[in-house]
Design a binder for these strands. Structure first.
Length: 345
DNA sequence: AACACGGGGAG
DNA sequence: CTCCCAGTGTT
């Protein structure tokens, strides 16, 4: 088999000694300082799966109450598979990246048909499970020797080995994955090793303010010894939010407003909200501008009211609390109910 | 490879 | 303001 030597890091004796030191130091640190988390120590597929999906692009502290409520309501794959999409999204309300919740349920249906995956390769077939999540579950639940490379691991390893290749490219990512898989991961508790690297990234090897002085790896960390740790990792892409000023139309009827489920192809698909349009409709009065910053869109909702009758379902402020509604739409709706009653008609 | 996809924490 | 968080799917 041909190997791509360009993507391999050195694997001499010195590197192996460094790897041994890494494992010893970080395991000791992890045993003493790891946070207590609701899913920490669990070794069955379902709760680990749910926790990993919830934690994608979301800080652990934010996830905890969502995870606990989710597990009380939908404690196993079967209950998730048979839940309504509305119920699933309501449990996810406020967490963001709502596609994760819908894919989680699709995954439950997939597992209902195909059985629970038990290997990294099988897990990749489940909707919503990518290389990180497959590695995390396979190593934590099934002791498979596979890396779980998230943002924390990219940062910790790029600093530890002084890897200046951009980590948000195929090559850069591969270098990190190869180092973890070929050099770092061992037979003993691969899941704990993966988790310990992530935990170190979250608590010590932080993006802006790393706590190098108390880091268990400072003796071998090339970024700490030879460079400026905060120069790493290198990231090549940087996308800036574009300004977006659509109209949010409140169709009112008495004390109720019209809401609809957002279409699949749109932002916030599956959630409920008022209609969002690019062009200003006829016969509406502008009420207020509500700003909401998405990652990719700095949004200025121009909230308008209309007394026309819309072909949608109408809800009172009490009734809409039962629906899954995004934080963005809650701001818009809240602006209407707090200001909209004052004035004309 | 580049982009879409939410919301919030922290400097 | 900025960056980034236990990433994945689509184009």
């Amino acid at each position: 088999m041909a190997k791509n030597l360009n993507e391999e890091l050195p694997m001499d004796d010195a590197t192996q000694n460094v790897a041994d030191s890494f494992r010893t130091q970080i395991r000791g640190w992890y045993g003493e300082y790891k946070r207590t988390l609701p899913w920490r120590g669990l070794r069955s597929f379902y709760p680990v799966w749910v926790s990993e999906i919830m934690c994608q692009q979301t800080q652990v502290a934010t996830v905890i109450p969502y995870f606990e409520r989710w597990m009380e309501t939908l404690p196993d794959v079967e209950s998730l598979a048979s839940a309504t999409e509305e119920e699933v999204l309501k449990l996810w309300e406020g967490l963001g990246y709502y596609r994760r919740a819908r894919l989680l349920q699709k995954g439950a249906l997939f597992i209902k048909d195909n059985g629970e995956p038990e290997t990294f390769v099988e897990m990749l077939k489940v909707p919503g499970i990518g290389p990180y999540t497959a590695g995390a579950i396979a190593s934590i639940v099934f002791d498979e020797k596979v890396p779980a490379v998230d943002g924390n691991v990219l940062r910790v390893i790029s600093r530890f080995r002084a890897i200046f290749e951009p980590v948000d490219t195929k090559v850069g990512r591969s270098v990190i994955e190869q180092f973890v898989e070929k050099t770092l991961i061992s037979e003993t508790c691969p899941g704990s090793l993966n988790q310990s690297i992530m935990e170190l990234g979250a608590l010590i090897c932080r993006p802006k303010v790393p706590r190098c002085e108390v880091c268990p790896l400072k003796g071998e960390c090339l970024a700490f010894l030879e460079h400026v740790p905060t120069d790493l990792p290198i990231k090549s892409k940087k996308v800036k939010a574009k300004k977006w000023s659509p109209f949010a139309v409140i169709y009112r009827k008495g004390d109720k407003i019209a809401l609809k489920r957002e279409e699949d192809k749109n932002l916030l698909s599956g959630l409920w909200g008022v209609p969002i349009v690019e062009e200003k409709p006829e016969d509406v009065d502008e009420l207020v501008v509500v700003r909401h910053q998405f990652t990719h869109r700095d949004t200025y909702y121009q909230v308008c009211v209309s007394d026309e009758t819309a072909e949608m379902d109408y809800f009172s402020s009490e009734e809409l609390k039962a629906l899954p509604i995004s934080t963005a739409m809650k701001k818009v709706i809240s602006a209407y109910f707090s200001n909209g009653d004052i004035g004309d008609s």
